[in-house]
């Protein structure tokens, strides 16, 4: 027997609890969530960057400073991607977001869909020019009807093709970079096996989507791992 009344009462408690947060953060809420998600990926990257060993002291003791550098660029007119560079305690990472699905239509908060990959070290270190400005890539749809994109990675242009996926994703871009392909695949494999979760290519991080569930799975696996050690 479905007990709607008790469910409804609990829902009202939840609404009362969450409404002040929505009201107080307003439009900043989306940005805030992006940052938090970036944290998770930064941490994963940090695991990998430290040869799969985590030492909290190496993360600067009790203060883990995440800084989104002022190097966030939205490339292309149709906003297929945005590339972010950020530091975690001085270690640099790149974060690739599919900004296209984050805000669309009338600009309302729609889906926080982050086609995210963290590219650590190897790809980001040589992308900083002498002014500290990063030009990671330019990626735009050549034709909306065709799943083909032009990507400029470190000054080289690539045609990126992909199958049924509506947006280019980072694995596609890496696929044209030879060594980087295996790097990314290894990265995913290591995280997958270490935490017994399947991350692979995160293809959909919209709320309720499979990516969010994967992310939840990643975070809970990390928590379980940390509790055991």
């Amino acid at each position: 027997m479905v007990d709607f009344d008790s469910w409804r009462r609990e829902l009202e408690v939840l609404i009362r609890r969450v409404s002040p947060i929505i009201r107080s953060w307003g439009s900043d809420f989306r940005r805030l969530c992006q940052y938090f998600q970036a944290y998770v990926y930064a941490l994963i990257a940090d695991f990998l960057g430290r040869r799969y060993r985590l030492n909290p002291q190496q993360l600067d003791g009790d203060r883990f400073v995440f800084k989104l550098s002022p190097r966030a660029y939205y490339f292309s007119s149709n906003k297929v991607f945005s590339f972010f560079a950020f530091d975690v305690n001085g270690r640099e990472y790149s974060l690739v977001l599919n900004i296209d699905a984050i805000v669309h239509g009338n600009g309302r908060y729609a889906r926080l869909n982050l086609d995210v990959a963290v590219l650590e070290g190897a790809l980001s270190s040589n992308s900083v020019d002498r002014f500290g400005v990063v030009f990671f890539a330019e990626c735009k749809s050549t034709d909306n009807a065709s799943p083909e994109y032009v990507a400029t990675v470190f000054g080289q242009r690539y045609i990126v093709k992909h199958g049924n996926h509506p947006h280019a994703n980072i694995m596609d871009i890496l696929a044209v970079r030879g060594k980087a392909t295996s790097y990314a695949r290894n990265m995913c494999n290591i995280v997958s096996s270490r935490f017994r979760v399947n991350i692979g290519v995160v293809d959909d991080l919209s709320p309720g989507g499979v990516g969010i569930r994967r992310l939840e799975s990643i975070t809970s696996s990390l928590i379980r791992y940390l509790e055991r050690h």
Partner: peptide, 16 residues
């Protein structure tokens, strides 16, 4: 979730 994770790490992350 992320807060719990950082608590487990004994870190106090500060978002800039």
């Amino acid at each position: 979730d992320i807060g719990v994770m950082f608590k487990a790490l004994n870190l106090r992350p500060v978002l800039d």
